[in-house]
């Protein structure tokens, strides 16, 4: 599978990353090569293999339903860029 310019632009947009115009071709080549590497898997017979959701062969451990956290708002908000009325302030996003 090979990626073209518009794929790179789309991926960059979805990731909210600014990409220099003159590097797009390079990214397209590099990312296509990575996909090519992974595509080698297509040649392996995997019909009998259960898809893996996680490399560790373990099941999720569960936590008891208890409140263990205390209010640390002051600490967290001390390092936030903008705070008002106990709220984190962010650029306006209205859908």
């Amino acid at each position: 599978m090979s990626l073209d310019r518009s794929d790179i632009e789309k991926i960059a947009h979805l990731a909210r990353m600014a990409v220099d115009e003159d590097r797009i071709e390079g990214y397209a080549t590099d990312l296509s090569n990575i996909l090519g590497l992974v595509a080698q898997m297509d040649d392996v017979a995997t019909d009998d293999v259960t898809p893996m959701a996680h490399p560790l062969h373990m099941a999720q451990r569960l936590r008891v339903d208890e409140v263990t956290e205390v209010n640390r708002r002051e600490d967290f908000q001390a390092i936030a860029p903008k705070v008002e009325s106990d709220l984190y302030l962010v650029p306006k996003v209205i859908e």
Binding site: K82, E84, S85, L87, Y88, L89, V90, P91, K92
Partner: peptide
């Protein structure tokens, strides 16, 4: 109105 910003309560 938070001076043109949005307030977030998490």
């Amino acid at each position: 109105d938070f001076h043109g910003l949005s307030g977030i309560d998490l």
